[in-house]
Design a protein around this nucleic acid. Structure first.
Length: 281
DNA sequence: TCCCAGGTATTTT
DNA sequence: AAAATACATGGG
């Protein structure tokens, strides 16, 4: 089917560091594995996306996943017309970014893995984890393409540490196991988190092993869709320090700081350090 | 060989 | 309460 949207750029979404299983397979063509499904997407032109799924599947899964019911135009024009030059450039550069609504468990485990790793390494770990503990499936819509789903909490809770290590998790193996066990034994109710406020969800998440304020914010933003969440990693911290000289205020962006954060993150990673310097004045 | 990556938990001051 | 340190792994 074909999707029409004036704020949907596959490349920018795939490379924005919020999801780790969306990859370019050919020019302008991307594969995506999520919620047990395999999907291919093509950027036909600026406003049209081709998808390999049916309209029914789109409505059932992908409409929400891609946050299609949220109006980004207002925020984008707000930022483009604002007085912050860095954000103006960031929004222009990252046009068509969206905040995905991903599976909570997958988001949780993925961002536990993310600590002290770069994005390619995170992706590699996750693929190995899916290969070892996920379910092998075939996509008949995509020519019998073989793929592996993200592991269930049960699978990871029962995993042996040395086996997890082989997936390249390093010291995070025990975080993954303990957190998965917390999910399976009911210490935390991931689905129930959806009913909580941002603050209450943060408290619950940070009780988990390997989950601090940054990971909890990423789960809040990319899994629970609390778009007021503003995860601060090394890149965002660099922006706050080098571009804004520690005087950045979230106040003008109350309620949608997470979207601002996403544009910032994506933009800063495209800049070389000397370019950052030249912006600093 | 050193440094860094979408940090967190633990120990030390 | 704040600051320092340990923690695996892979790539530049």
């Amino acid at each position: 089917m074909i999707l029409q949207s004036n704020n949907f750029n596959l490349k920018h979404i795939a490379e924005s560091g919020q999801c780790f299983r969306m990859n370019e397979i050919r020019d302008n063509r991307y594969s995506l594995i999520a919620f047990g499904k395999y999907l291919e997407l093509v950027q036909i032109d600026e406003k049209r996306i081709g998808l390999t799924c049916s309209e029914e599947e789109f409505q059932e899964i992908w409409q929400e996943y891609f946050d299609m019911d949220y109006n980004y135009n207002k925020i984008v024009s707000n930022l483009s017309e604002g007085s912050d030059d860095f954000l103006k450039n960031a929004v222009r550069y990252g046009n068509g970014l969206r905040i995905l609504k991903q599976d909570i468990f997958e988001t949780l485990i993925s961002f536990i893995i993310s600590q002290r790793k770069n994005i390619p390494a995170i992706k590699q770990c996750i693929e190995q984890l899916c290969y070892k503990y996920g379910e092998r499936r075939i996509s008949y819509e995509c020519g019998g393409k073989e793929y592996y789903t993200f592991p269930t909490p049960k699978k990871l809770a029962a995993a042996y540490r040395p086996d997890l290590r082989e997936a390249g998790l390093g010291y995070r193996d025990e975080y993954i196991r303990k957190t998965s066990q917390a999910v399976t034994n009911g210490e935390i109710d991931l689905e129930g988190l959806k009913q909580l406020s941002y603050d209450d969800a943060m408290v619950q998440l940070m009780n988990l092993s390997g989950v601090g304020i940054k990971v909890a914010n990423c789960v809040s933003l990319y899994g629970l869709h609390h778009i007021e969440a503003f995860p601060i990693d090394v890149w965002i911290a660099r922006i706050l320090k080098d571009i804004y000289r520690n005087e950045f205020s979230l106040e003008p962006y109350t309620g949608f700081a997470g979207i601002v954060q996403q544009y910032m993150f994506y933009y800063i990673r495209s800049l070389k350090s000397n370019q950052v310097q030249s912006l600093n004045n």
